[in-house]
Design a protein around this nucleic acid. Sequence first.
DNA 1: TTGAGGATTCTC
DNA 2: AGAATCCTCAAA
Length: 179
Amino acid sequence: MNKILAMPDGRSGRIVEVEAYCGAEDPAAHSFRGQTTRNASMFGEQGHMYVYFTYGMHFCANAVCWERAPGSGVLLRALEPLTGVERMREARHGIERNTLLCSGPARLTEAMGIDRELDGADLVLGSEGPLILDDGTPPPEVPTASPRIGISRGIDPPWRWHIEGNAHVSKRPSRPRAR
DNA sequence: TTGAGGATTCTC
DNA sequence: AGAATCCTCAAA
């Protein structure tokens, strides 16, 4: 949280919203039932990226992190755009409001140009493109744990965290999602 | 081999 | 509230 996701072409943003998915102990995790072709990178090296395709049109990106359990990862849900904003705007079909560029897991991958080609990329070295940097900004002192969004199982543990008051955090649907 | 459902977003 | 849209995996 509060670290920076950067692309080689200059696009970058601060990570202001994340969710944790915790392997075999988490029914909502793609890795819940063990390793498959799709989720293989969740079982690969920590610090690499797990990118998945969903709803027939969207990509979402995770940082693989086994701190709690094997096959775990952190879903990147929102960025505050820092640099390369015009580039992001192009990628997002000219969307004007900066708060809509990266405020959602599939929005931020579209804005940053992240797709299945980058599944498994090393986020620490940045050798394949995306890189996570620490500019010294500390994570929030008071955790803002809340329920995860868009899942149908494993809804109990409040494993979503965001920077309180940040305008680029994604908006929670007002109604509980159908299903 | 089949088909239900999905860590979503956009528009109506 | 409904559509877009395709891939994965469990079940048969």
